[in-house]
């Protein structure tokens, strides 16, 4: 299955988060790797989007959207670090 990478998440997730998710670093609960979400692999289909760890392939997150709502799961992320904009 063709994939892209986490850079693609910037647009779809900007609607729900006030920070740029692609620069947030996430710890994979599968292998412990900490990396920017931009470095994750993104698999898209009609059913939704699956975000996988770039190191081990573990599912980090899922995104399913419909007309009037979205379901966002972070089943494979044990922590996220978000940089604050410098004051």
């Amino acid at each position: 299955m063709e994939h892209v990478d986490g850079n693609w998440l910037a647009g779809p997730l900007a609607e729900f988060f006030s920070f740029d998710v692609t620069m947030a670093t996430a710890r994979c609960s599968g292998c412990g790797t900490v990396a920017e979400l931009a470095r994750a692999m993104v698999y898209r289909s009609g059913a939704g989007t699956v975000v996988r760890c770039g190191s081990c392939g573990h599912v980090l997150a899922t995104l399913v959207e419909s007309e009037d709502r979205a379901w966002i799961g972070f089943s494979g992320v044990s922590a996220i670090e978000v940089r604050r904009e410098p004051a």
Binding site: N7, D20, T22, A38
Partner: peptide
Amino acid sequence: LGAFFVWRPGGAGSGSAG
């Protein structure tokens, strides 16, 4: 969109993880 695949003059190393 996106702040990861970005280059800025004079601060090229900014934002790298770790």
